[in-house]
Design a protein around this nucleic acid. Sequence first.
DNA 1: CCGTATCCCTGGCGATACTG
DNA 2: CAGTATCGCCAGGGATACGG
Lengths: 108, 108
Amino acid sequence: MDKEQINCIESAHSAVQLLKGKWTYYVIIELLMNDIKRFNQLKSSLGNVNTKALTDTLRFLEGKGMLIRTVYPTVPATVEYELTLKGKDFGRILQQMKDWNDKWEIKE
Amino acid sequence: MDKEQINCIESAHSAVQLLKGKWTYYVIIELLMNDIKRFNQLKSSLGNVNTKALTDTLRFLEGKGMLIRTVYPTVPATVEYELTLKGKDFGRILQQMKDWNDKWEIKE
DNA sequence: CCGTATCCCTGGCGATACTG
DNA sequence: CAGTATCGCCAGGGATACGG
């Protein structure tokens, strides 16, 4: 890896930010696996996150253009979340992280 | 990306943890660019992090096998930090994050 | 020079109750 | 069902001073 490349890596910063939150990573994984999920489906899948943490996370990812929130005017309300193309493409990064981890984890 | 692949991505978890800390990312970048740096060199490169935050970060990364800490018994003490092979290989992930970001960032 | 030792403070997150 | 609204905690970081 040459120096110029590395120098430019600083622009990885905004991608890194996406993984700072405690739940962002798990939400993305869930939506990669299931395409579409409703609020409470996500909530139970993630082992009962509290509602505030989950809504904060979803709003954050929506703001970053990672997912789409769709509200259906039913009673009671139905809301579906799914990844955008950008969000789905992020899966490649997670895949590479997995590969890296498998490669370097301690074996005994 | 098929479902089985995605399911396994959960093992990306420990790679994700490496980016949670406020300074881990920047330390790795610095050491990718410079191979070897001493404590105060890192400190000033990172825009004067406070000492505690930096030592915590360095100890954390050392514990994860990302870097090597070498102490030279000079007076005053000299300490050098450099990435391990594992740490250097992590650069590929950051590179891909940069590529992803360039691909999807908003242009206007 | 390279930290350790304190103290402090903030914001991310949790628990819970309540609404359209 | 899908949140919003409060309140509170506490771990991660910051500022500073001191030690080998």
